[in-house]
């Protein structure tokens, strides 16, 4: 949670106004592919909300962030914050 404070402060908009990637109902690895596809087209610093009810998303979005040098955080059971921090 501590990580998010400077990030939230740096954002022009609140989390509620971020672009939403809706992967509800899709199974792994689709939600992670959806998040990566969206962020690849965006400039570094772009944040988005990923909606996913797949049980594999919680561990996998964290592993994705570690592997690709980006940022992710689980906000709610089916809601994740992702932020582009590298060109991957």
């Amino acid at each position: 949670m501590g990580y998010l404070t400077p990030l939230r402060n740096a954002l022009p908009n609140s989390v509620a106004e971020l672009p939403v990637i809706d992967s509800i109902g899709t199974r792994c690895p689709q939600p992670i592919i959806d998040a990566a596809r969206f962020l690849r087209t965006q400039p570094i610093g772009t944040a988005a909300i990923l909606l996913s009810d797949d049980p594999a998303t919680a561990p996998d979005i964290l592993a994705w962030a570690r592997m690709t040098h980006n940022y992710s955080e689980q906000l709610e059971p089916a809601k994740f914050l992702v932020r582009k921090e590298s060109d991957f």
């Binding site: 792994c28 594999a56 561990p59 996998d60 994705w64 570690r66 592997m67």
Partner: peptide, 17 residues
Amino acid sequence: NLEPSHVLAAMGKLTQG
């Protein structure tokens, strides 16, 4: 099986693929 491997998840490893 909807749940990914609990071993991989506990280690923080990627469970897909």
